[in-house]
């Protein structure tokens, strides 16, 4: 426990780390507690108060149907975190499994898995995601699946390198010599040593997954209306940009802060966890 505390303190001593952690907490709490803290129902329309600017009743103004922008943003963050989180977990599980097993078993299996991963990496992220969604049909679950598939090779590649080194390390060979099962070697000796790499990459991936989700929703391929979604709000607000920029600007700002928070946090985590960078 004291280790966790000193780790957190180290994180907070870096101003960027403190900012990243703060933003991340703010976004995650805002998203999780959205149903409790949102001042209005995100779908409730108030036709008389359309496209209003920020006021005491509506802190961030209202959209073209008179819906409260703050409430919609909070629920939008929730949706965005759900999709981004799910996709990163999926990529982590599948990619992590493929990468570690490829490193562990080596040989033809390794070459085959990594070649397939390379083929996936040959396509730009957004292109592959759009392609998968065009195949599966646009909705939240498919967006998560698409982003997850796109990120899988990144995780597979990421863990394979260190796992190869670990496989040859003396303590892993000692464990094998003592007759530990493959599952035990992987779970007890490989995974704990890969934890920091995985943690850093997951945080950074969340940051970009939020952007990809927003882009897909912006194009109409992610979350479908009337469910609140940050990318969709930004896109819908486009038509009213000159009369009432609030919807677009604030939802765009929410995307930016969410992505920025995870990005800063991931970067500072990497600096803190990587002993080679200590004292820089």
């Amino acid at each position: 426990m004291s280790g966790t505390w000193s780790f957190t303190r180290g994180l907070l001593r870096n101003p960027l780390g403190a900012l990243g952690l703060g933003l991340t907490l703010l976004i995650v709490l805002g998203g999780l507690l959205a149903p409790l803290i949102a001042p209005y129902d995100p779908l409730r329309q108030d036709i008389l108060a359309r496209l209003a600017g920020p006021s005491a009743q509506h802190w961030l103004g209202t959209d073209q149907f008179g819906r409260d922008v703050l409430s919609r943003i909070l629920h939008g963050i929730r949706a965005s975190l759900f999709v981004a989180g799910l996709s990163v977990i999926l990529a982590l599980l599948v990619g992590g499994f493929l990468g570690v097993s490829a490193a562990y078993y080596g040989g033809l299996y390794d070459r085959l898995v990594m070649r397939v991963m390379d083929v996936f990496l040959a396509f730009p992220i957004i292109l592959l995601a759009i392609g998968i969604i065009a195949m599966l049909g646009p909705n939240q679950a498919n967006t998560a699946l698409a982003i997850g598939i796109v990120y899988t090779p990144i995780f597979a590649r990421l863990v394979r390198g260190p796992a190869l080194v670990l496989r040859e390390s003396e303590y892993v060979q000692a464990a094998q010599a003592l007759g530990a099962s493959t599952a035990r070697v992987i779970a007890r000796h490989l995974l704990p040593n890969l934890a920091s790499v995985i943690l850093v990459q997951s945080t950074l991936s969340l940051s970009t997954a939020i952007l990809v989700e927003a882009s897909l929703s912006f194009l109409g391929l992610g979350t479908q209306p009337p469910t609140p979604s940050l990318g969709l709000m930004l896109s819908e607000g486009r038509a009213y940009l000159t009369i009432s920029p609030w919807t677009s600007v604030f939802s765009g700002l929410a995307i930016l802060l969410a992505s920025l928070g995870f990005n800063l946090l991931g970067d500072v985590l990497r600096d803190t966890l990587d002993p080679r960078l200590k004292g820089r």
Binding site: S215, R238, S248, L256, S259, L260
Partner: peptide
């Protein structure tokens, strides 16, 4: 950091 975290469509809308 901001450049990395800002979606390009937001930049486009702000510039427009």
């Amino acid at each position: 950091y901001f450049g990395l975290a800002t979606p390009d469509f937001l930049v486009a809308l702000l510039l427009i």
